[in-house]
């Protein structure tokens, strides 16, 4: 079973509400603060991007559905800080120990922000298994769309594509495997492909016979046909 975040193809969400091109980047001040606090905490180096995505996904389905975007971020950040032992539950209650934290020396400084953002966090790696598939080749996405390593764990195979037949469009290189990386099981890099699926392979009532959806899928999500 997938989690509530895996919503591609879901019915019932109503219309999309476009915004003006010049709408504020942050609709509320606290949105900006939530983003900044989350990025600054990421720089402490206690988790990776896959861990933090998983932290948002494992909010209770009820919270995930009712929280706004940055509420999810801040709730997941609080959970992650406790899970990784950076903060205690007492800290969150305002009853924690005083004084500087042992990780304080790793705190992101203003003068290093530009450098850290510009450096990014590339996900491509040397080595790993050789590519098994070539452009044009027919493949099938694994079913079910579950993490094969950890029950209920993080995966980037959306449920809507599970079991569907598609075609390799391109090889992106060898990338960190989120299903492993999110759980501290190592980067386990694998070849990553853009795979195109006919809309008719995914949906009972596609809008147009020529429409397609492309997903980026790791090699172990795919089997040859």
């Amino acid at each position: 079973m997938t989690r509530v975040h895996d919503m591609g193809g879901r019915f019932g969400d109503g219309p999309v509400a476009p915004e003006a091109e010049d709408a504020p980047v942050f609709a509320e001040d606290w949105h900006a603060r939530a983003l900044a606090v989350t990025l600054a905490c990421g720089a402490l180096g206690q988790w990776n991007i896959d861990t933090s995505r998983h932290a948002r996904e494992k909010l209770s389905p009820k919270d995930y559905a009712r929280f706004s975007y940055y509420e999810k971020w801040i709730a997941a950040l609080a959970d992650l800080l406790v899970e990784k032992g950076v903060l205690t539950r007492a800290d969150l209650e305002g009853k924690g120990a005083a004084g500087l934290h042992k990780l304080a020396e790793r705190a992101l400084k203003a003068e290093n922000v530009a450098g850290v953002l510009a450096k990014g966090g590339p996900a491509d790696r040397e080595g790993g298994p050789l590519p098994r598939f070539s452009p044009g080749q027919a493949v099938r996405a694994r079913i079910p769309a579950d993490n094969a390593l950890v029950d209920g764990g993080h995966t980037r195979l959306p449920a809507y594509a599970a079991g569907a037949q598609g075609y390799i469009l391109r090889l992106h290189g060898t990338h960190v495997f989120p299903d492993s990386s999110a759980h501290g099981l190592g980067e386990a890099p694998e070849p990553l492909y853009a795979v195109r699926f006919h809309a008719s392979a995914l949906w009972a009532h596609p809008e147009h016979p020529e429409d397609e959806v492309v997903l980026d899928l790791w090699q172990s999500y795919l089997e040859p046909l």
Binding site: V37, C41, H101, K109, A110, V113
Partner: peptide, 12 residues
């Protein structure tokens, strides 16, 4: 706790 620097937040 010194884990985040307010000036860094402003910069982000």
């Amino acid at each position: 706790k010194g884990l985040i620097d307010p000036a860094a937040l402003e910069e982000i």
